[in-house]
Amino acid sequence: MLNLIWPIFIIISFGYSIFSGNLSKLNESIFSSAESAVTLCITLLGTMCLWNGIMHIANKTSVIEKLTKILGPLMKFIFPNIRRNSQVHKEISMNIVANMLGLGNAATPLGLKAMKSMQKENSKKDTLTDNMMLFIVLNTASLQIIPTTVIAIRSSMRFK
Protein backbone atom coordinates (compact mmCIF):
# COMPACT_ATOMS: atom_id res chain seq x y z
CA MET A 1 0.00 0.00 0.00
CA LEU A 2 2.79 2.39 0.87
CA ASN A 3 4.27 1.56 -2.51
CA LEU A 4 1.44 3.63 -3.88
CA ILE A 5 1.05 6.31 -1.23
CA TRP A 6 4.70 7.18 -0.71
CA PRO A 7 5.52 8.16 -4.29
CA ILE A 8 2.26 10.13 -4.43
CA PHE A 9 3.35 12.11 -1.37
CA ILE A 10 6.71 12.88 -2.96
CA ILE A 11 5.29 13.84 -6.35
CA ILE A 12 2.56 16.03 -4.87
CA SER A 13 4.94 17.85 -2.55
CA PHE A 14 7.36 18.55 -5.39
CA GLY A 15 4.62 19.75 -7.70
CA TYR A 16 2.84 21.86 -5.13
CA SER A 17 5.99 23.46 -3.72
CA ILE A 18 6.91 24.76 -7.17
CA PHE A 19 3.38 26.03 -7.62
CA SER A 20 3.27 27.73 -4.23
CA GLY A 21 6.89 28.90 -4.20
CA ASN A 22 7.85 26.87 -1.13
CA LEU A 23 10.78 25.14 -2.81
CA SER A 24 13.42 26.38 -0.37
CA LYS A 25 11.33 25.18 2.57
CA LEU A 26 10.94 21.81 0.90
CA ASN A 27 14.65 21.53 0.31
CA GLU A 28 15.34 22.30 3.95
CA SER A 29 12.71 19.88 5.23
CA ILE A 30 14.08 16.88 3.35
CA PHE A 31 17.30 16.89 5.33
CA SER A 32 15.88 17.96 8.66
CA SER A 33 13.22 15.20 8.43
CA ALA A 34 15.76 12.48 7.77
CA GLU A 35 17.81 13.76 10.67
CA SER A 36 14.89 13.89 13.07
CA ALA A 37 13.93 10.31 12.17
CA VAL A 38 17.36 9.26 13.41
CA THR A 39 17.14 11.19 16.68
CA LEU A 40 13.68 9.81 17.26
CA CYS A 41 14.77 6.21 16.74
CA ILE A 42 17.66 6.60 19.16
CA THR A 43 15.45 8.05 21.89
CA LEU A 44 12.78 5.46 21.12
CA LEU A 45 15.24 2.59 21.60
CA GLY A 46 15.36 3.06 25.36
CA THR A 47 11.66 3.07 26.16
CA MET A 48 10.80 0.50 23.53
CA CYS A 49 13.30 -2.00 24.94
CA LEU A 50 12.19 -1.27 28.49
CA TRP A 51 8.51 -1.90 27.73
CA ASN A 52 9.14 -4.95 25.66
CA GLY A 53 11.24 -6.39 28.44
CA ILE A 54 8.61 -5.71 31.10
CA MET A 55 5.81 -7.09 28.95
CA HIS A 56 7.89 -10.15 28.17
CA ILE A 57 7.96 -10.91 31.90
CA ALA A 58 4.15 -10.53 32.03
CA ASN A 59 3.89 -12.89 29.11
CA LYS A 60 5.89 -15.58 30.92
CA THR A 61 3.73 -15.45 34.06
CA SER A 62 0.20 -16.73 34.43
CA VAL A 63 -1.21 -13.17 34.35
CA ILE A 64 -2.99 -13.79 31.05
CA GLU A 65 -4.62 -17.01 32.27
CA LYS A 66 -5.75 -15.38 35.52
CA LEU A 67 -7.32 -12.45 33.73
CA THR A 68 -8.98 -14.84 31.30
CA LYS A 69 -11.10 -16.18 34.17
CA ILE A 70 -12.33 -12.71 35.09
CA LEU A 71 -13.38 -12.28 31.47
CA GLY A 72 -15.90 -15.15 31.70
CA PRO A 73 -19.16 -13.19 32.01
CA LEU A 74 -18.15 -10.74 29.30
CA MET A 75 -17.34 -13.61 26.96
CA LYS A 76 -20.75 -15.12 27.57
CA PHE A 77 -22.29 -11.82 26.55
CA ILE A 78 -20.18 -11.31 23.40
CA PHE A 79 -20.07 -14.93 22.21
CA PRO A 80 -23.24 -16.52 23.66
CA ASN A 81 -23.01 -19.59 21.43
CA ILE A 82 -19.46 -20.60 22.30
CA ARG A 83 -19.32 -23.26 24.99
CA ARG A 84 -17.58 -22.28 28.18
CA ASN A 85 -14.27 -24.07 28.86
CA SER A 86 -14.05 -25.23 25.25
CA GLN A 87 -10.74 -24.80 23.47
CA VAL A 88 -12.07 -21.98 21.29
CA HIS A 89 -13.42 -20.17 24.34
CA LYS A 90 -10.05 -20.30 26.03
CA GLU A 91 -8.13 -19.14 22.97
CA ILE A 92 -10.46 -16.25 22.26
CA SER A 93 -10.34 -15.03 25.87
CA MET A 94 -6.57 -15.26 25.96
CA ASN A 95 -6.33 -13.29 22.75
CA ILE A 96 -8.60 -10.59 24.17
CA VAL A 97 -6.59 -10.35 27.38
CA ALA A 98 -3.31 -10.16 25.47
CA ASN A 99 -4.79 -7.39 23.34
CA MET A 100 -5.92 -5.48 26.42
CA LEU A 101 -2.44 -5.63 27.90
CA GLY A 102 -0.96 -4.34 24.67
CA LEU A 103 0.92 -7.61 24.10
CA GLY A 104 0.59 -7.51 20.33
CA ASN A 105 3.28 -10.16 19.86
CA ALA A 106 1.35 -12.58 22.07
CA ALA A 107 -2.13 -11.64 20.86
CA THR A 108 -1.61 -12.46 17.19
CA PRO A 109 -0.49 -16.10 17.56
CA LEU A 110 -3.29 -16.68 20.08
CA GLY A 111 -5.79 -15.11 17.70
CA LEU A 112 -4.61 -17.26 14.82
CA LYS A 113 -4.98 -20.36 17.00
CA ALA A 114 -8.54 -19.33 17.82
CA MET A 115 -9.26 -18.86 14.11
CA LYS A 116 -7.95 -22.36 13.43
CA SER A 117 -10.18 -23.87 16.12
CA MET A 118 -13.21 -21.99 14.80
CA GLN A 119 -12.41 -23.12 11.28
CA LYS A 120 -12.66 -26.76 12.45
CA GLU A 121 -16.33 -26.23 13.31
CA ASN A 122 -16.98 -24.20 10.16
CA SER A 123 -19.26 -25.97 7.67
CA LYS A 124 -18.39 -23.69 4.73
CA LYS A 125 -14.62 -23.74 4.77
CA ASP A 126 -14.12 -20.79 2.43
CA THR A 127 -16.50 -18.40 4.21
CA LEU A 128 -16.24 -16.53 7.51
CA THR A 129 -18.67 -17.58 10.23
CA ASP A 130 -20.51 -15.01 12.38
CA ASN A 131 -18.28 -15.74 15.36
CA MET A 132 -15.17 -15.37 13.23
CA MET A 133 -16.35 -12.01 11.92
CA LEU A 134 -17.08 -10.73 15.40
CA PHE A 135 -13.72 -11.99 16.59
CA ILE A 136 -11.81 -10.33 13.76
CA VAL A 137 -13.62 -7.02 14.19
CA LEU A 138 -12.81 -7.14 17.91
CA ASN A 139 -9.17 -7.51 16.95
CA THR A 140 -9.21 -4.72 14.38
CA ALA A 141 -10.94 -2.43 16.86
CA SER A 142 -7.95 -2.66 19.24
CA LEU A 143 -8.89 -3.52 22.79
CA GLN A 144 -5.72 -2.10 24.31
CA ILE A 145 -5.92 -0.80 27.84
CA ILE A 146 -2.15 -0.42 28.07
CA PRO A 147 -1.04 0.91 24.67
CA THR A 148 2.61 -0.04 25.03
CA THR A 149 3.87 1.43 21.76
CA VAL A 150 2.22 4.81 22.30
CA ILE A 151 3.55 4.93 25.85
CA ALA A 152 7.05 4.23 24.55
CA ILE A 153 6.85 6.98 21.93
CA ARG A 154 5.36 9.55 24.29
CA SER A 155 7.82 8.98 27.11
CA SER A 156 10.81 8.97 24.80
CA MET A 157 9.77 12.38 23.43
CA ARG A 158 8.97 13.87 26.80
CA PHE A 159 12.32 13.17 28.39
CA LYS A 160 14.42 14.37 25.53
Binding site: I10, I12, S17, N22, L26, S29, S33, A34, A37
Partner: peptide, 11 residues
Protein backbone atom coordinates in the same frame (compact mmCIF):
# COMPACT_ATOMS: atom_id res chain seq x y z
CA UNK B 1 9.24 11.42 7.83
CA UNK B 2 10.81 12.80 4.68
CA UNK B 3 7.63 12.37 2.65
CA UNK B 4 5.38 13.94 5.28
CA UNK B 5 7.87 16.69 6.03
CA UNK B 6 7.89 17.42 2.30
CA UNK B 7 4.10 17.49 2.15
CA UNK B 8 3.93 19.87 5.07
CA UNK B 9 6.63 22.24 3.84
CA UNK B 10 5.19 22.32 0.33
CA UNK B 11 2.10 23.92 1.85
Amino acid sequence: FVAIGALRSSG
